[in-house]
Write a protein that binds this DNA or RNA. Sequence first.
DNA 1: CATGAATGAGTTTTCATTCAT
DNA 2: TATGAATGAAAACTCATTCAT
Lengths: 209, 209, 209, 209
Amino acid sequence: MERPTPTEPAPTGPRQQRRRLAARRLSEEGLKLIARQGLAAAKVADITAAAGVGKGTFFTHWPTKDAFVSDLLDQVLTDLARRVRPLGLAPTDAETLVADVSAVHLRFFQLRPEAAALINQALALDTGGPAHQAATQRLGAHLDMVAAMIAPAGEQLGWPRKRARELALALVATAGGFFWLGGPLGLGADIPLELLDRLGRALGRGLAR
Amino acid sequence: MERPTPTEPAPTGPRQQRRRLAARRLSEEGLKLIARQGLAAAKVADITAAAGVGKGTFFTHWPTKDAFVSDLLDQVLTDLARRVRPLGLAPTDAETLVADVSAVHLRFFQLRPEAAALINQALALDTGGPAHQAATQRLGAHLDMVAAMIAPAGEQLGWPRKRARELALALVATAGGFFWLGGPLGLGADIPLELLDRLGRALGRGLAR
Amino acid sequence: MERPTPTEPAPTGPRQQRRRLAARRLSEEGLKLIARQGLAAAKVADITAAAGVGKGTFFTHWPTKDAFVSDLLDQVLTDLARRVRPLGLAPTDAETLVADVSAVHLRFFQLRPEAAALINQALALDTGGPAHQAATQRLGAHLDMVAAMIAPAGEQLGWPRKRARELALALVATAGGFFWLGGPLGLGADIPLELLDRLGRALGRGLAR
Amino acid sequence: MERPTPTEPAPTGPRQQRRRLAARRLSEEGLKLIARQGLAAAKVADITAAAGVGKGTFFTHWPTKDAFVSDLLDQVLTDLARRVRPLGLAPTDAETLVADVSAVHLRFFQLRPEAAALINQALALDTGGPAHQAATQRLGAHLDMVAAMIAPAGEQLGWPRKRARELALALVATAGGFFWLGGPLGLGADIPLELLDRLGRALGRGLAR
DNA sequence: CATGAATGAGTTTTCATTCAT
DNA sequence: TATGAATGAAAACTCATTCAT
């Protein structure tokens, strides 16, 4: 209470460190399991067991499983955004920008196929529940960011500015879908970076009849 | 068992017709519900209620819910294949072929966003279970078909023939992912066919730097 | 559906009878267990086991445990009201009416001590939840009925008409509390009816200094 | 264990004072919460938070939650006894004695409705457990005391001496039940002391037909 | 001593599936 | 064959209690 607490256990004590470590491991293992087994099949008990903590510990970090997934989605998209955003700074021509944004997404999802899996699964969160809304909004926010970045480029390529979000969606969905569907099919995981770039070109030359 | 009395009205009697009608309605409503609420949230009870039949009836048509989903996936992909296959017959140049295959997929998923939803959800079927294997194989078969169709075109576009499945995957994932992610975000559903075609071109010109 | 259903399984078929029987047994056993062990300690699993049905069956009859308790309270108070109401019809003098209402309550709770237990426990239902509200309202309705019946008599005994509910509360609480607290103490259960009547008189003469 | 070093500042040092203060606050807040939300719904965490101490501190004062409730009940009944006992000293006529005992209980529970709540809830402690036994015994002891006090008066009022405990029970249950049931119904809390006395008389004249 | 993070046994509740009618 | 009532395995989540700091 009003005790002067001279020794100050502080919020950065070793206790808090352990705690944060547990949270990180839960996130990591949870993401892995969700990607491997699907959202519904990844039980909280499995996740905690994989992270080496008790079942109850999970719920001291997140109030519900859905909240956990929302949080995971946020982490993943934040991480993704960190790699995408720099592209908006150095000015280049329209086609390069679009190709680069696409490439960054592809590479990101190749390195972290669990991220692709999560994004595609998160939409199946309890429909109508707050977590589903949160997930939808978070994904929408990412698209907004990408859209803002590529809208001018899209316009030069003949795409209406008002539909920029759909162009962004196409870029993200291509990359995410590729590695999400590819995972269980054993496709994409071993595709070399060089080919990944050429995939865009091949797809591009094909689409642009 | 089926008591084959000679006076019995053939197996195509009105009984069978009713039965087949029920199956069709179950498939339709089930697909709708899975797309709207997700695989796990779409309860068998909901599906039968929507189809206007008793809960038990469901299990006279499919042995398990997973089998139902597998069947649904098969129906959807068979339907999709029916529209894709003709493109392989009339010979055109490489770029047009790729663009056309992509366009057919996009249009199909725009008209039937539930199909896109199903394909993305089906991979989340209880991993390790036979239904998950079946779903993976079925999707793989579709990719094989598309790959066989576009492999030569891909080669002309500079894409290694051995990696044709990945090119096919990119085409399918772009289309499916676009409408699967777009659904909850309210994107794509109202995009006019003309723009849909230009989406490919814009994306293409962008990717092909 | 639109099938003429000539054989009409009817809602009064043997199936429904079994079902209603199960509900009755669940109510009975549930009431017993709640009285014996308390609301929180009476697990749904115990109740279903005692009633000889599967755990899941419980939830086909009531959506939640709280709803079950609300329903039980309603049954009990309806039963009680059936015995109290007739007293309001035959006109008697004030003191006799009050004594009779009190006596009916006492006898009712002596015969069904579980009812007394339930009434006292029901107020501990998840506070703020709808079941708690329902229980409070239901009990209030019973008091309203008793109050309406004894208000004139109370007035003759010098009790303000506006406070009739409090007089009713005193009558009900005396009887309910007596057998609720008496139960675990081993008091009251074996008190003969004749003494029960004299209890009122003794208490009465004592209180009326 | 308690390291009895001679230089230690007596067991009544400021440390002990703080400790005792915490215990008192825990008791007060615990009683409030149990009365407001019910025994099961009043979590240890809520109680400690309300008392402004850490969760672990609770268990340095009482070994279990049940022990805490037992202790609370003991405190409450001891407090009540302190006000009831004096009535047994000054000799009065039978009716006055009964009325006074009743009045003291009523006033006590009006001032401390949480006490009424606690007494009615304590019986719902895990049946079979030692805490439930303790609570039952403690309540029985209170009844014994009241019974010893009013047995002669009861006899004069025509109540068999052997049943004195039941008469005591009736007095206590009336008062306790009135404010316990009245609480959630919004009854009794604002009833003026003067009316409270008349309640006994009205009830009494009614019961004593 | 005081603390609060960790724990897991125990509860309610869900829902695919079975099966008597 | 169609039905829907019954079932119980399984899952999320709660919370009293422990114990390292």
